[in-house]
Design a protein around this nucleic acid. Structure first.
Length: 843
DNA sequence: TGATCCCGCCAACGT
DNA sequence: ACGTTGGCGGGATCA
């Protein structure tokens, strides 16, 4: 069966790491086992294992050095091993290899040690399962587990039976971006909230009535059973495997990763993950065994991901006690960088609504052959096609061939879809990919926005048919039925809230709510919890419940030992008192001018999470961040700021939180606040949070010099694909004039004059909002006229009139949910989750 | 105990 | 029919 002996240097790369290191154990009489690990080393201290594992930092080991380093790691391992052996003598045989030695995690490490993180495109990186299994001395079954999740990350791809191609981390960033997109599309964030809420309510033994309600809402989220997410250039390599149940470890793994990518504290508990992966609906169907199984699987996946150092195990402690969870430690995934021409729009199984799109899609393909890398999913309608193609390919592949031939044939099957890469041998794929990418970039920029809205061709599609849409519908780029419009790239949108009394403005993150109700959310940002009393925005939260929450929370707070977190109930202002916070809250309700902006994340990774506090609904005293504007921006900006205190900063840069990494844990903000001044920051908090302020508009100018505010906006819009990268937009797209694109040639629009450009841009912006509102996927954060600095608190019930309305109902900016917000972003206006304290501890 | 998760049966699949 | 994949969950280990 192993007829297909790979002609590559399998032999060269295969030799078990440990075997190579044998010499290092010279002193020991360990019989040089042909196979790596002598089956009996009781060296099992968990700590050691962990140290070893951590020692093998993927960062460190790369390319050439990688091997050596891994050897070192193994060396240590081996040394340990040898030592143990010495201690135990030859009688080691009696001691079965500790369970840990057989752990998937360790196995995975061994596996990974065999291949470079970034294999050169030149070398053949084939994996023969048989050989690997043999060399690692494990059953093949185990290898499958590893390979499957690696496959989900596109670190490997299947070539033929028993054979995989190793890609290393070359595709990782792309994959993650893609996964993040899909995750957002799937509204995982909301689902997580949903689950947490349900969990919460369950805890309080709320009658089924509520559950029903919840069930409905959750059901509406339509947990889209998306399929395997593929990457351009790798479409069908996994197809054969995909034909099987797509609930496979592969898909599960991707979903799992998605959860991390869309969660703000990038921490996901197994429980929540399992529930989401199991699929919603199962309200009462809390099939115990099913759940258990899912958990088991998640552990498997987690082990591999941990080995890849994409996640690490932590524990979150909340009311219910310690719960196993994992924290994302992988690379920060930026929304979607312009240089990543990834079309993730089709990564999910098309929903019935998109049935009519095929033609468009096809059209798009024809017009942009270079972009042929369409991502296909295993939607039933495609299965057949995929299979037939797969079959064809297999016919070719099944025969022994040279590496090049194999890869060529592999890619060849892609020919079904016009693509440059499809015609090229895999060996040059990577390089080509880069070129192709660039080439595509320009072409695709044109359709960028279209892509955002789901694989439609910009100019090809008629027009936006958003019902009741107040937005211009002539924008071709977004002319797709908004219903199909994917959710926002950033579920959270910062908004500035002027604070009348303190003169401080607050940045609030508005999260797109499915219910079209804006709620506040602080993505682990520097914030201040609002007094519980002011929960005007919480409509469905029953008072009784609230009290409970408050109490419980208070208790929990006390339990925290971190000073900055000592935000006990006592500290909170009387519920009835009109604190500044409260006013602020009110003001927020009256929030009149918001700027939808994309949140820029610059996560301070690798933070100590021994203790973490995850805030929920908070206000962010922006002025506090002033000093943090180390990035430095036009002085005039600063001047403008100082003149308008409440207006905060017009520069997003000004809002860069001066804390990073570990510092983020807690920031104390003195003045302004009546409520506790301790600010909690989650480890993953954003280091920089661009926020557009109204005042910024005032102080902004139309000069060509781009002010920070506009830069953020531009960044956002460009990011979202609503405007070409060359186009610049003033801070206030609605009030200002759009400067001439700095790089007209970059734009695909042929518009030559600024005015036209402006029009387009504005259209885009409007559409952005329209899309947001109509699709209900973006927060209902909409630009509204704001006279000036309100000096008086607004009526709490004041609801900002939305610029746009959703078909399903009015988009309303609800009052701040105060502390009712849960540990994560809020999805539905009625689905507030009580703030919880999450204590994350590592192991 | 509860958290982990190894192990390997055995069914779906591919050839 | 036979080999490859890989879903699954019993039950052993670990903490």
């Amino acid at each position: 069966r192993s007829v297909l002996k790979t002609p590559l240097k399998q032999a060269a790369t295969s030799p078990s790491v440990l075997a190579e290191i044998q010499p290092d154990c010279q002193p020991l009489t360990t019989p040089p086992k042909p196979k790596e690990t002598p089956p009996a080393e009781p060296w099992t201290p968990t700590s050691n294992l962990k140290i070893l594992i951590s020692a093998a930092s993927p960062e460190i080991r790369s390319r050439e050095q990688r091997r050596e380093l891994s050897n070192n790691t193994s060396e240590i391992l081996q040394a340990k091993h040898c030592l143990q052996e010495h201690l135990l003598g030859d009688e080691y045989e009696k001691s079965q290899p500790s369970r840990k030695e057989k752990s998937l995690g360790l196995l995975c490490h061994k596996f990974l040690a065999r291949y470079p993180d970034y294999p050169s495109t030149a070398e053949n990186n084939y994996i023969c399962l048989d050989e690997v299994a043999e060399e690692l001395n494990v059953e093949r079954r185990r290898i499958y587990d590893i390979v499957n999740v690696l496959e989900s990350l596109h670190m490997v791809s299947r070539l033929a039976k028993n054979r995989y191609a190793w890609h290393g981390r070359h595709n990782l960033s792309k994959t993650l971006q893609a996964l993040k997109k899909v995750g957002e599309k799937n509204k995982y964030t909301q689902q997580i909230q949903m689950i947490k809420k349900r969990e919460y309510e369950h805890e309080f033994d709320l009658n089924g009535e509520r559950n029903e309600e919840m069930a409905r809402s959750f059901g509406s989220t339509k947990h889209s059973e998306m399929c395997f997410v593929e990457l351009p250039g790798m479409e069908f390599r996994a197809a054969s495997v995909n034909s099987r149940k797509d609930k496979s470890l592969r898909v599960m793994s991707q979903k799992f990763v998605m959860l991390f990518l869309v969660s703000t504290p990038q921490i996901v508990s197994l429980e929540v993950a399992a529930k989401i992966l199991i699929g919603e609906e199962q309200l009462e169907d809390l099939d115990k065994s099913k759940f258990k199984t899912k958990i088991r699987r998640l552990y498997d996946i987690a082990n591999v991901l941990s080995s890849l150092e994409l996640i690490k195990k932590v524990h979150v402690t909340e009311e219910r006690g310690r719960k196993p969870a994992f924290k994302w430690t992988g690379p920060e995934v930026l929304p979607n960088t312009p240089d990543t021409e990834l079309d993730t729009t089709s990564m999910t199984c098309p929903s019935p609504i998109s049935e009519s799109i095929p033609s468009k899609e096809q059209c798009s393909k024809n017009l942009f052959p270079s972009r042929g890398k369409q991502n296909f999913t295993r939607h039933p309608s495609l299965i057949k096609l995929v299979k037939s193609i797969e079959n064809d390919r297999r016919k070719v592949q099944s025969a022994p061939t040279s590496p090049i031939k194999i890869s060529a044939s592999t890619d060849g099957n892609l020919s079904a879809f016009p693509s440059k890469m499809a015609q090229v041998p895999a060996s040059t794929n990577h390089q080509l990919e880069g070129q192709a990418k660039k080439e595509r970039e320009t072409k695709i920029k044109l359709s960028r926005s279209a892509l955002e809205c789901n694989l439609s061709l910009p100019q090809a599609v008629p027009k936006c048919e958003a019902p009741r849409s107040t937005a211009p519908s002539q924008q071709p780029a977004l002319s797709q039925p908004l219903g199909i419009c994917p959710p926002g790239h950033s579920p959270v949108s910062p908004v500035i809230l002027p604070h009348p009394h303190s003169g401080v403005s607050y940045a609030i993150y508005l999260h797109a709510s499915q219910a079209h109700t804006v709620t506040t959310y602080s993505p682990s940002f520097m914030v201040q919890p609002l007094p519980r009393a002011k929960v005007t925005g919480i409509k469905s939260m029953n008072p009784k419940l609230l009290n409970k929450i408050t109490t419980e929370e208070g208790d929990n707070q006390i339990a925290t030992d971190e000073p900055t977190k000592s935000f006990t109930a006592k500290d909170r202002p009387p519920i009835k008192s009109e604190t500044s916070s409260q006013r602020c809250l009110k003001r927020s309700q009256a929030l009149q001018e918001n700027n939808l902006i994309k949140r820029y994340r610059s996560d301070g990774e690798s933070l100590d999470t021994s203790l973490t506090f995850f805030p929920s609904g908070y206000l962010i005293p922006l002025t506090q961040c002033t000093h943090s504007s180390k990035a430095g921006f036009p002085n005039k900006e600063k001047a403008g700021l100082s003149s308008l205190q409440h207006t905060t900063y017009s520069s997003p840069i000004a809002r860069v939180i001066p804390v990073t990494g570990s510092e983020l844990k807690a920031v104390n903000i003195p003045a302004f606040q009546i409520t506790p001044l301790n600010i909690m920051l989650s480890p993953n908090s954003i280091a920089a949070a661009p926020v557009l302020s109204n005042s910024g508009l005032n102080s902004s100018n139309t000069s060509s010099a781009q002010n920070p505010s506009s830069s953020v906006l531009n960044f956002t819009l460009q990011h979202i694909g609503l405007i070409p990268t060359g186009v610049q937009v003033p801070a206030n797209p609605f009030l200002q004039h759009v400067p001439v694109p700095s790089q007209p040639e970059n734009t695909n629009h042929s518009s030559e004059n600024a005015s036209l450009q402006e029009e387009k841009v504005n259209e885009n912006i409007l559409l952005l909002f329209a899309c947001a509102g109509l699709s209900g996927k973006y927060g209902a954060v909409v630009p509204v006229e704001q006279p000036s600095v309100p000096k008086e608190p607004q009526e709490p019930q004041t609801v900002t009139e939305n610029f746009f309305r959703t078909p399903g109902g009015p988009n309303t900016v609800s009052s701040l949910p105060a502390n009712s917000v849960g540990t994560d972003r809020v999805s539905q206006g009625t689905l507030y989750i009580p703030q919880r304290k999450l204590e994350v501890s590592e192991d």
